[in-house]
């Protein structure tokens, strides 16, 4: 009964795409490391510089220190090359990331499998929904979209345009309507139409706005009136350029609406996306998707090893190319 997305064929370009996107992130990081270790002793100074490089990639002080420490434990005072250091760091990162690299499982029995998408303003929720819808449709699911951002000007229209492009029905209400009411309607309609998946967009909200978070909780409450297990997934969309505030975002959204997974967007910028490593370590929440561009194809499942190795500017290698 389950159709795992992981079984979909990886379209040829996606690893290349991810690498291209990520290579921008890694160019500076690896450049820095290469400068550091053409072949040099891994002493305190070198370790400190290494730690700083990781911090500069938004890994955060704690994770950066931990990774550097583990490197120090195994190789302190050894002569090491840049390649070795990159490999070792990538391995350590991959170890942290592997448990969270999980594709989203869609249960067709739910009819529909409800995915609520939330996040702060401007993180890329609507675009992510469009990409997900495109992907789900591509693998043969019947998808319905709910334009739950009834606050921001033209947010509904934005999703409608995407809906037309990928040929998905979009359920909407005029701007200013109650988002929870819309979600309720959407779920009933999707159910009546025997849709496989219902993707619900929500307005962007900062996690410290109590009222807006309560509104999000209301959406969840109302969905449960139709299906007590809904939403089956609650996806938090994070912008890769975000710094340590990502921790707060995950923490609060998780507490409020029981986030079940993450999508990380805009990894095609120069932002390092390093925060993903720190988040994986702290929250153990699956990373379902990453976004590496603006077009429909620019989002795929998250591959820990490929991500870690790409981040360090290394070839993705056999395992990643499966």
């Amino acid at each position: 009964m389950t159709e795992m997305l992981s079984e979909q064929k990886q379209s040829l370009g996606w690893l290349a795409r991810m690498r291209k996107g990520l290579s921008r992130s890694s160019a500076k990081l690896t450049g820095g490391i290469t400068d550091l270790f053409t072949k040099r002793k891994l002493d305190d100074d070198a370790l400190e510089e290494l730690e700083e490089l990781l911090i500069r990639s938004d890994l955060g002080v704690t994770t950066a220190t931990k990774l550097t420490q583990s490197l120090a434990n195994s190789r302190f005072n050894q002569e090491v090359s840049s390649e070795e250091i990159r490999g070792a760091l990538a391995d350590d990162m991959a170890t942290i990331l592997e448990p969270v690299a999980q594709t989203i499982s869609i249960y067709q029995a739910y009819k529909p499998h409800v995915i609520l998408v939330c996040g702060v303003n401007g993180s890329g929720k609507t675009t992510t929904i469009a990409k997900m819808a495109g992907l789900f449709k591509h693998v043969g699911f019947k998808v319905v979209l709910a334009a739950g951002d009834t606050f921001r000007a033209a947010a509904v229209e934005q999703l409608q345009i995407w809906g037309e492009r990928i040929d998905c029905p979009v359920i909407s209400r005029p701007i200013g309507s109650d988002a929870a009411g819309l979600a309720y309607d959407a779920l009933e309609k999707a159910r009546a139409e025997r849709a496989d998946i219902l993707l619900i967009d929500t307005a962007g909200r900062l996690q410290n706005k109590t009222d807006l978070m309560a509104e999000l909780q209301k959406i969840v409450r109302v969905l449960k009136k139709v299906d007590e297990n809904a939403p089956h997934d609650c996806l938090l969309v994070l912008d890769a350029t975000v710094g340590q505030n990502a921790h707060n975002q995950v923490e609060v959204f998780r507490e409020m609406v029981n986030v079940t997974g993450l999508a990380v967007t805009k990894l095609d910028g120069s932002a390092k996306g390093g925060v993903v490593v720190a988040l994986a370590e702290k929250f153990d929440l699956p990373v379902h998707f990453i976004g590496v561009g603006e077009s429909m194809e620019d989002m795929r499942a998250f591959d820990a090893r490929a991500f870690a190795r790409s981040l360090m500017g290394l070839e993705v290698g056999e395992r990643g190319e499966k």
């Binding site: 710094g243 505030n245 932002a271 390092k272």
Partner: peptide
């Protein structure tokens, strides 16, 4: 620019 921007703020502002 977003007040939540991380370390990348320098790179992006500079570019």
């Amino acid at each position: 620019a977003d007040a939540m921007t991380g370390q990348d703020a320098v790179t992006l502002a500079d570019s």
